[in-house]
Simulated assay, not measured.
Amino acid sequence: MNNILEIDLDRKLEIKINNEKPVALKDLSLSLLSFNHQFHKFIESETERDLDVGSELLIKEVRKGSIIVELVSQAAPIAPLLWEGGSLAQWASVVEDTCKWLLGKSDTPPKDYTKQDLQEWNKFVEPVAKDQGSQMNINVSDGGTVINNFTINSTEANAIQNQVAKKIEQLDTPEDHIHKMKVMYWYQAKFDTDSDTGNRAIIDDISKNSLKVVFENLAVKEDMLHPPASFDKPWHELAYLVDVEVEAVRGVPKMYKVLRYYPEHTFNPEVE
């Protein structure tokens, strides 16, 4: 059974899915829509900003064992002039290079990708990833002459999706875990100055939950334990302005490491 995506622009681009099982309509639709959106973004990024570029997938023909659609674009007369092999050949190269990057066969992606972009590449290979033994063949030809041709099998499609999940997790985790000048107040405090256990605090700007607190060094902890004498409350009932490093597990904050605190900004949280 073959599902065929045929795009007739300046060249012919065909995506053939050789599937072992019937392809779910939702998976195929999301795959085609994701492919279309990525092509549209590619054309937009490579043309002038004031150029009105639009593209959409139109179902051209449905028959037993085949689905044929066309990608039409307002940029069709212009886009082919940007590349020697035409826009479809260039786009197919981007698709191939993206797949190679997600398969670990190259170190850098052909373009910068956002979280949404990665999610769409995940959807693009979904029909093949779900069907063990299937494969997707992408072919660009000009008058019967093959310009570009490559294949993604179900094992590779699954590997692509696994890599997409890892890269999205990396995007969700900020590179800089240090948050400066945040208000912290104690939820639970242990009065043993030599112990880092039993101390929990809340920083509303980061998490509404109380998290474990440790200190980068004892000097920072000793300073916080001795707030200005003008307060009539013990240290663990005051609010502090601190710099903290946030330790997270699977993107969820789990622990604060207090790096510095600003004694001049200490205040009583019960006083407005």
Rank of each mutant, 00 (worst) to 15 (best):
Q90H: 13
M181P: 02
L241I: 13
H37F: 12
T145F: 13
A159M: 11
E237T: 12
G104N: 07
Q90E: 06
K233Y: 05
E245M: 11
P227N: 05
H37N: 14
V220H: 00
S207L: 05
I147W: 06
E216F: 04
Y185K: 12
C99V: 15
W235K: 08
A189E: 05
V53C: 04
D194G: 15
S66N: 11
D232E: 12
V69F: 01
I68S: 07
L9N: 08
K167P: 03
I78R: 03
N18Y: 11
G104D: 10
L33N: 10
V242E: 06
N217E: 01
D205L: 03
L9D: 02
F191I: 11
L51Y: 07
E126P: 00
D10F: 09
A248I: 08
Q74A: 12
C99I: 14
D117A: 13
P77N: 05
H177W: 04
G198A: 09
W91S: 00
P234G: 08
V72K: 05
Q170R: 12
D131I: 00
Q170V: 10
D196S: 13
V249C: 06
Q90L: 02
P109W: 11
N122A: 08
K221Y: 05
W101H: 13
W186N: 02
S210A: 15
K100S: 08
I67S: 04
E61L: 14
S73D: 02
L259D: 03
Y240Q: 07
M255Q: 13
A89Y: 00
D223G: 15
L218I: 05
E14R: 15
S66H: 08
Q132Y: 04
I68T: 04
A189P: 04
D10S: 14
P22F: 09
E84K: 15
I203C: 02
N148R: 15
V183Y: 03
A239G: 10
L218E: 08
